[in-house]
Amino acid sequence: MIETFKELVAYLKNPVLEEDPNTDLQYRLKKFGHLFIISVVSIGLLTPILALIEASGLINMDNHAVVEMMENLPKIAVFFFAAVFAPLIEEVIFRGPLTIFKEKKSFKFGFYIFAILFGLVHITNYTITTNVLLLLPVLVAPQIILGGYLGFIRIRFGLGWSILLHACYNAFFISLSFAGLST
């Protein structure tokens, strides 16, 4: 796990268009598991900051698109949207094009831009207010970070793996919400 984390951090500092030459399924499943845990823990570390913002009254999370969706749709529809539809569409849009950047500098630029755009598109989950705009970097930080992780696995293992990681990540957090365990 520590090796995977160090590899991920090094990659995020200097992303390159280079597939992992090890195509062994067991190896990839192990790395996938590590990346899933790293993703969940990373976002878990940001949760207290987001909870503090909500508790301070700066943001009303009751107006969050996911909360509204959970109140208005059957759980199975919410789960399908969050764990199947959204990951598939978002990965095709935000990670699919990464391999068109063949030059080292353009790849690095494209990698970061797509991770940031992935985060920024998630601001639409909030009702746009002055506070939301002022807190935008903090509110979308989890998605920007996740965008980097998903970009890493997409380049190293392929688009299918980033779709799967995104789906598992969303399924985990939506399941926590269904169980009443998330903020």
Rank of each mutant, 00 (worst) to 15 (best):
T130N: 10
Y149C: 02
D62R: 06
S42H: 06
K31I: 13
V132I: 13
E90F: 07
L88S: 09
Y112F: 15
L46I: 12
F107E: 01
L133C: 04
F111I: 02
L181Y: 11
M69K: 12
L50T: 05
F80L: 10
K104S: 12
F157Y: 15
Y126C: 06
G33S: 13
A115V: 09
A51I: 12
R154S: 15
P142G: 04
L134T: 10
P48H: 11
K75P: 03
P74Q: 08
A65I: 08
F85P: 00
I100K: 14
L50V: 00
M69C: 00
A55F: 06
N72E: 11
P87C: 08
I100M: 12
E7I: 03
I43T: 15
K13R: 14
I155F: 05
L17C: 10
I144W: 10
L46F: 13
F81Y: 13
M70S: 15
A83T: 04
Q26V: 11
M69F: 15
S39E: 09
S39F: 09
V84T: 07
P21L: 06
L136V: 05
E68I: 15
F152M: 04
K13A: 14
K102G: 05
E3R: 12
G110Q: 10
R95G: 02
I153Q: 00
R95E: 04
E18D: 12
L176R: 03
K31L: 11
E91A: 14
V84Y: 05
A83S: 15
Q143I: 00
L45C: 10
L17I: 06
P21K: 11
R95C: 02
